[in-house]
Amino acid sequence: MAARGSGGGSRADEQRQRILAGAVAVFSRRGYRAASMNEVADQVGLRKPTLYHYVRTKQDLLVAVYEEVLDESLASARRIVAAAPSAREAVRELLVERVRYTCEHRDLLTICFHEESALPPELAEPILERRREFERVVRDAVAAYLRESGRALPMSVGTYVSTCLGAANWTYKWFDPAGPRSPRELGEDVASVLVGILDG
């Protein structure tokens, strides 16, 4: 995960990032509910009182995981759309990148897909809004391609995008790091099939 903060970040920022990475390792291995703050502290080599100096609760760590994934995903999606030479290429690259990110961060995605019910509504809503904003970026790119090409889908844009993101996200379950395809190459394969529906 990328470090946050301006420039190189303060020592406290770096320590929080270490703690977050440790929490990801523990939560993905043990499950959020079974994991303890003692295990997170052990993972990063801190005493528990020191850990609590940087983070108040286990729930705060879970929220930070979601924020990290969604903020990175949204920023990446916006960059892709801004840089793409065409709406079609934007859609294709959005799907390639979604698969690549999912396959390269399977520990993060395991947490995000399995632990959402552990978030209380007041904490879940801002996270869900980030997710909706990411989905809007993808929907807008698809709608732009349909306008440019004069093509039509046999389903709503929302259904198409949900299907595409479901297929891309599910690769975290079956991608084999030792397999013949890299995350990027697998993304190209998946995007080829999904964008083919738009071109058909």
Rank of each mutant, 00 (worst) to 15 (best):
M1S: 07
A2L: 07
G7Q: 00
G8E: 14
R11N: 09
A12C: 08
D13S: 08
D13N: 12
Q15L: 14
Q15V: 14
Q15H: 01
Q15I: 03
Q17V: 15
A23D: 04
A23N: 11
A23W: 06
V24I: 11
F27N: 02
R29C: 06
R30W: 09
Y32F: 13
Y32I: 02
R33D: 08
A34M: 08
A35C: 01
S36H: 02
M37T: 11
V40G: 11
Q43I: 06
V44G: 00
G45C: 05
L46I: 13
R47H: 14
T50L: 06
Y52M: 15
H53G: 15
Y54Q: 09
R56S: 15
R56A: 14
R56D: 15
L61V: 03
V65R: 00
V65Q: 09
E67P: 11
E68A: 09
D71M: 14
D71F: 04
E72F: 11
A75Q: 00
A75I: 07
S76E: 10
S76M: 10
R78M: 14
V81A: 01
V81R: 03
A82K: 13
S86K: 02
E89A: 13
E89C: 09
E89S: 12
E89V: 06
R92S: 14
L94K: 05
V96D: 02
V96K: 00
E97D: 14
E97N: 14
R98Y: 08
R100E: 02
Y101P: 02
C103R: 01
E104G: 06
D107P: 11
L109G: 03
T110F: 03
H114N: 14
E115H: 10
E116K: 01
A118F: 08
L119C: 02
P120T: 09
A124N: 08
E125W: 07
E125Y: 11
P126S: 05
E129F: 12
R132A: 07
V137W: 03
V138P: 08
A143M: 10
Y145C: 04
L146G: 00
S149I: 08
S149F: 00
A152F: 06
L153T: 00
P154A: 05
P154T: 01
P154I: 03
S156C: 12
T159G: 06
Y160L: 05
V161W: 00
T163V: 13
C164W: 03
G166T: 05
G166K: 04
A167P: 02
A168P: 02
W170S: 13
T171K: 07
Y172F: 08
F175T: 12
P177H: 03
P177Y: 13
G179V: 15
P180L: 14
E185T: 12
G187E: 00
G187I: 04
V190L: 07
S192N: 04
S192C: 07
V193L: 13
V195C: 06
I197R: 02
